[in-house]
Design a protein around this nucleic acid. Sequence first.
RNA 1: CGGGGCGUAGCGCAGCCUGGUAGCGCACCAGCUUCGGGAGCUGGGGGUCGCCGGUUCGAAGCCGGCCGCCCCGACCA
Length: 575
Amino acid sequence: MRLTRYHMPTLREKPAEAEIPSHSLMLRAGMVRKLAAGIYSFLPLGWRVVKKIMEIVREEMDRAGALEVFLPVVQPAELWMESGRWSVFGKELLRFKDRNQRDFCLGPTHEEVIVDLVRGEVRSYKQLPLNLYQIHIKFRDEARPRFGIIRAREFIMKDAYSFDKDWESLDRSYNAMYEAYSRIFKRCGLDFVVVEAESGAIGGDVSHEFMVWAPNGEDTIVYCRSCGYAANLERAASREVETSPSEQPADPEKVHTPDVRTIDEVSAFLKIEPSRLLKSLIYKTEKGYVLFLIPGDRELNEAKAKRAAGVETLEMADPAEVYEIAGASVGFVGPVGLKKRITVIADRSVKSGVNFVSGANEDDYHIVNITPEKDFEVDGYEDIVFAAPGDLCPKCGSPLEFSKGIEVGHIFKLGTKYSEPMKAYFLDEDGKEKPFVMGCYGIGVTRIAAAVIEQRHDDNGIMWPITISPFEVYLLATNMKNEKVKEVSEKLYQGLLDEGIEVLYDDRDERAGVKFKDADLVGIPVRVTVGERRVANDEVEIKLRHSKETLVCSVDEAVDRVKEIVKQLYEELEA
RNA sequence: CGGGGCGUAGCGCAGCCUGGUAGCGCACCAGCUUCGGGAGCUGGGGGUCGCCGGUUCGAAGCCGGCCGCCCCGACCA
């Protein structure tokens, strides 16, 4: 492609709206332009990258035996009511009515549609397993789109759905996707880790996320260097630490703490470590109210809390409800002397502790020296807090480490969460009707492009891995007015094209400096420079964007050398 | 949804406090010179100052409302 006939509007300055490298560089390199918050247009250069990512995804999905389909973006409300998610999904689900006042939504995911498609069509276990996937637009009306393409409202996703006759078969489908995903991200040049994850609103029991290491990532990866344990923050467990109390349980005592409410205030007022305070949180669930007790220096992990309480929904009780249960306002609640008896679940670390401090269930009073079992009852001790730095690995006991990451893929074992309510059944060998055992598997295709840039850039611009680079070679003619430079450049351009190499030929009538800057910015891995001095000796220069390694060779051997280098770059990523 | 900030030419910004009819750099067009790391000179084109209303002889600037965008948080398959 000749740059004079291409559209690659590069920006010299960093756009004000961009906070992180990938966002800034995608705008500067002329890959994308914003249309509205979280909604982007892809320009020719950016679209080439997306297409290459889609092609890798497609190849690996096909290799894994999945079949490509194409499902509607606009989906009828009835389907979502059937699965129960019309009411569960919040404002993220963009809803609207058609001309006949029927409710529709823009698909944020496609479980409902795929189940609807498969039920009725697939009737026998003989037709299983089946794995259908698609690559196209998703729309989620995010509360706060950010970081450019990383967290957009409209984005391209590859989503796949597997249908199996039983859990054992699902395991095989799931593992096949796990393998395919690993290959996909490796081919895209990403440095990633697979973590155990919560399954969230999608549901299901087992789930893994594919996380790309990136300081600007929104997710927190909790991992162990010694044994390889890795989980996202929501899921991460830590080893239970058995402590033998260093002091004897003392007698509880009520103390006057006027207007002292928060953990920090209480800690400062009573001069007691936050870890000795008991944070008492009252939640409303579908099974009634629950009091969660955690150390003052910890945060309640609601996902863990739900599991511990065996409930589906968890919502903080409002001040009026709190008052009714505790007999005191928020800030003075504690496990001792609750007005109403409700379920009490304590973090397991509370079990071996003594002489805690909590609210006294009376405004402006706290109670000190309370000890579980002695002074208050607990219905269960569970791990209900977020892991924190300093915690130990649940598997091997080494210190856990925390790092930021970008989620590029997520796989779930759904089981019958959708097939059951949506009555998607097949007839098994034993002649019985059974719901499909499902899995679902997502990849943020456009997000991959941004994640790759986060990992592979320098001060001058992007450094694409060749597998998803918009072009393989950047042919740079330093001066188009120099006859020899032009002649040799044209010859090389044709030579490279003849070899099937994707080359972006900078034939613009620009100064060399401008071209070098643009070449670095757009980050095509191999640059061939035809300059006046070299070309006078029938030589050209080949430079690698990533390593800055440079070699000079004769014009005659240039095409072969480039071919060799390109081949080698692919091998490094696809081996 | 809570808190903060910003909206002036394609991009980056100044002007606003202290009202007087819009400016700088880059980009764009033309010419000459230049030509391996975002050239120089000369001349040019381009702006309902986010929108609506108010105050005023006069509003980019003051006041009110709305919209959009960005950041922090909450939320997040």
